[in-house]
């Protein structure tokens, strides 16, 4: 949209709602706090509209060839490329509608049948779902190259103590977020502060400016970045664990083809199948005994 009509529309919205969306000076325009809050809701509204349109389209065409699928934002680009190539080969007749969605959002849409299949980040609430095998990508730590721990071949989590941790916003996958912090604490690392960071350049800025650290799988680390380095964690205590999932009883041929293809694509870079954790001590208040 051209600039003047866009500005006029924004100003009309601001008048209608009685909320300032942008701060304007002669040199720059920045979004207000109110604007940020409304943006979040507007995005949700748009996402719901898209899902509604997709369902309606599927119904009106009487097509079963549309597959509504979602991937989490942290899936590597190469994996997505392998997935899409594989799907084109296996199910050329299926029209794929692919969304990038957080695990929390995927669970809601699987439950409301707005999605046919998704790639979940575990752990999460899997009630009512069928799952493909879980694949594990071990996480290492991204550090400023001149950090003292950057010289170690593998970094114990305890060696990170004193550093803030940059982690994805909790709302995207609360149980994954909590599990990472619990595992850090279990291994002697309780970060003084946990900062929300998501995009790579934002994360990079925080890493460099505040002596913070972040976790990333091998391959996602900024190999050519002159200022940052990636090191494996000693004993591989942390991992991204993904699997395809679909509502129980709704795994048709297209869903299964997607699940198999994505499992293969993830498997190319995975450390192997998911391994159960060590011993688990149930406490008396658990009430059940197995």
């Amino acid at each position: 949209m051209a600039q003047p009509p866009l500005s006029q529309r924004i100003q009309r919205l601001e008048r209608e709602w009685g909320v300032r969306l942008f701060e304007r000076t002669s040199r720059r325009v920045s979004i207000t706090k109110g604007g940020t809050l409304l943006l979040e809701e507007a995005r949700q509204l748009l996402a719901q509209t898209e899902a509604l349109t997709a369902t309606a389209r599927r119904l009106s065409d009487g097509r079963s060839g549309l597959l509504r699928a979602a991937l989490p934002p942290d899936i590597a680009g190469e994996t997505i490329a392998v997935l899409l190539d594989g799907l084109r080969e296996r199910t050329p007749d299926v029209e794929l509608e692919l969304h990038e969605l957080s695990t929390a959002e995927q669970l809601l849409r699987l439950a409301s049948h707005e999605l046919d299949v998704a790639v979940l980040h575990h752990p999460c609430d899997v009630a009512g779902l069928e799952l493909a095998p879980v694949l594990r990508h071990e996480l290492g730590v991204v550090l400023p190259r001149d950090a003292p721990t950057a010289d170690l071949e593998t970094v114990p989590l305890a060696a990170l103590s004193g550093h803030d941790l940059i982690l994805f916003p909790r709302a995207l996958a609360p149980a994954v977020h909590d599990e990472i912090l619990t595992t850090c604490a279990r291994h002697g690392y309780t970060p003084p502060a946990v900062r929300n960071g998501h995009g790579p350049s934002f994360t990079r800025g925080l890493l460099l400016s505040s002596r913070a650290v972040a976790f990333a799988p091998l391959g996602a680390h900024p190999g050519r970045d002159p200022d940052l380095t990636w090191r494996p964690l000693t004993g591989a205590p942390l991992a991204w664990r993904h699997s395809a999932a679909w509502p129980r009883g709704r795994g048709d041929a297209a869903v299964r083809a997607f699940a198999e293809t994505v499992t293969e694509a993830l498997g190319r870079t995975a450390a192997g199948p998911d391994l159960p954790a060590g011993p688990l001590h149930l406490r008396p208040s658990s009430e059940y005994w197995i």
Partner: peptide
């Protein structure tokens, strides 16, 4: 109980 770490088992 350690098998409960596997989401396929929980499901």
């Amino acid at each position: 109980p350690s098998a409960l770490a596997d989401p396929q088992v929980v499901a």
